[in-house]
Amino acid sequence: MYKGGKIIASLIIFVGLFTIPFFYNMGKANAGPEVNLQQLEYMQSVEPAIDMIAEHPQLFNQWRNEAVREGKTVYVNSEGQSFDMSIEKLAGSDSSKQLCASCHDYLAVQPTCWSCHIEPKEAVK
């Protein structure tokens, strides 16, 4: 290889620089979102049949279609429990009012819910 030594040395330096963040954080525990178990449990209890963390956006989309188009405003979950289909009520239902924000902030997702829906007053973005 023409000028092989220089190329390989540069490659090693490049890979080293590129992976600094991984080595820097190696062994340190991930802080994780500040979600308390009660919040998670409550959210899961809305619909125990699905993984609420992964599938709540799809569930909310179904809620929206039922509420706006069919005029059905009450959700009866797979265990027969009724919930008002309202993300305002859901977000304001736990005492800290951080049910949505705690996870969304950590994951840096910014759903546009609150650009129209009225966010519970105590909630911090």
Partner: peptide
């Protein structure tokens, strides 16, 4: 595409 097929939707009682 659809999730939670077991669930139902209802109207409020005094609607």
């Amino acid at each position: 595409k659809e999730i939670a097929a077991a669930a139902e939707y209802a109207i409020e009682q005094d609607a």
